[in-house]
């Protein structure tokens, strides 16, 4: 056993024998591949790693990874993962959820896992639709989305997952695209390395019920102008050859696009610890702006389960006997 622990594992070691049952062409396949590659790259141990999921297409994920896994109930994965972390604070726990599971039925638990900063890597596969129940609109669907349950178009305003996370007090917010291997794997590795709740939104294409919903920024021909890959300490530039940049208009407290070649001094520099900047970046999107990708916000704080143990009077150890507790009150003896 110890020999195996010392050797470097490969993505194959993290691939379970279970037959994968997502639709052919589903973005989940690419995400699965990236996750197993990252697990191998970062030196994760299968027995120390747990995938916890709720319900939905994305939530089948744990069956396909050769680690410990718990496929739970709709929306509750963050709560179950929190309990697991309280019992075993040092496990490497990933939560896999979707836009319906994480932001609709489970929105409350996601909110609290994030604000508590529980040491979970939370992967939210956003495809803006309910897949497993056959195509109803989701809380991230854009207004006017026509689905079997909204034949005249949906009327509610969608939630922006990153902004929700920021509002909830998340300390790590990142974004990736299912088929963007390099970008996604960099984000997953960063999430793994974060000591707290790491929230990763993955734009995931549902080929059956919502095909090409992110095409406006994921298609190759639009990508340069429609994707802003942020990096801490680097100028916020995008477009062919980084010709475009983001500047802050101080009068309106909003972002605008400038020619980065002509006016490089005006281009904002990414500061991943700045929550105000993160809010502005997370709100951007087509057609006017690019979509921000990468680690948008990272600002560490003590993680919950560590604090739970550290502030526990005996660090969760049993140091007193129940026989004594039974007598911690006035007692009397009957002869």
């Amino acid at each position: 056993m110890s020999a195996a622990i010392d050797s470097k594992l490969t993505p194959k070691d993290f691939t379970s024998e279970q037959e994968v049952r997502w639709c052919p062409g589903c973005g989940d396949y690419a995400i699965l591949k990236s996750v197993t590659r990252v697990l191998a790259d970062v030196g994760a141990r299968p027995e120390r790693t747990v995938f916890v999921s709720g319900i939905g297409c994305s939530s089948r994920f744990p069956y396909y990874v050769e680690t410990y896994g718990f496929h739970t109930i709709h929306g509750r994965a963050p709560a179950i993962a929190t309990g697991l972390k309280l019992a075993q604070p040092d496990l490497d726990v990933w939560v896999v959820t979707g836009d319906g599971d994480g932001l609709s039925i489970g929105g409350n638990h996601l909110l609290h896992a994030l604000r508590r900063n529980v040491g979970l890597k939370i992967l939210l596969f956003n495809n803006e639709v309910y897949g497993l129940t056959k195509g109803q609109y989701s809380p991230t669907s854009r207004r006017g989305t026509r689905t079997p349950s909204t034949p005249y178009g949906s009327i509610d305003t969608p939630v922006v997952p990153g902004l929700f996370a920021l509002g909830a007090g998340a300390r790590f917010i990142a974004r990736g695209i299912d088929v963007d291997k390099q970008g996604l794997e960099a984000v997953l590795a960063a999430a793994h390395g974060f000591d707290g709740a790491a929230f990763v939104e993955i734009f995931q294409n549902c080929i059956v019920y919502n095909d090409n919903v992110f095409a406006a920024f994921t298609e190759k021909e639009h990508a340069p102008d429609a994707q802003l890959r942020v990096e801490h300490g680097k100028p916020l530039v995008f477009g062919e050859d980084g010709s475009k940049g983001l500047r802050l208009d101080p009068r309106t407290l909003s972002l605008s696009i400038v020619d980065a070649k002509e006016r490089p001094d005006e281009v904002l520099v990414h500061d991943e610890t700045n929550a105000t900047l993160a809010q502005l970046l997370l709100g951007l999107g087509p057609p006017e702006f690019p979509v921000a990708l990468g680690v948008i916000y990272r600002n560490p704080a003590p993680r919950f389960e560590q604090e739970f143990v550290a502030r526990h009077p005996t660090q969760m150890k049993r140091t007193a006997k129940i026989a004594d507790a039974l007598r911690q009150t006035s007692t009397w003896v009957v002869e």
């Binding site: 179950i80 309990g83 019992a87």
Partner: peptide, 13 residues
């Protein structure tokens, strides 16, 4: 719901 779920997670652990 979170309370029972956390208890289940704790037992799982």
């Amino acid at each position: 719901i979170a309370a029972v779920c956390a208890a289940i997670g704790a037992s799982y652990g």
